[in-house]
């Protein structure tokens, strides 16, 4: 199972991509562990995770159709 993860704001620049794909994760907790090991920069920057347009604060089961987004805070004005 491959999940597409949309990147927002500075995460795009830090990871050099608009989105990334992660293979073989069943839920959002496993996704975070795998993301942080494959992309160590994600441990250095704060962001929130959204699944299917909902900001999540606990574990969510993922499917191939899940839309995941990583949202960092923006300060500029």
């Amino acid at each position: 199972m491959r999940i597409k993860i949309l990147l927002f704001g500075q995460l795009k620049e830090r990871l050099g991509a608009d989105f990334i794909e992660i293979e073989g994760v069943m839920d959002s907790d496993l996704l975070m562990v795998k993301l942080k090991s494959e992309f160590p920069v994600l441990s250095e920057i704060s962001f929130r995770v959204a699944v299917d347009k909902n900001l999540i604060s606990e574990k969510v089961v993922l499917s191939e159709k899940s839309e995941v987004a990583l949202l960092p805070p923006f300060s500029g004005g």
Partner: peptide, 17 residues
């Protein structure tokens, strides 16, 4: 959304970016 402020060097502001 963002419970605590990021550290100073995490995210740039408009003067820098």
């Amino acid at each position: 959304i963002f419970p605590n402020p990021p550290m100073d060097n995490e995210i740039g502001n408009c003067a820098e970016i």
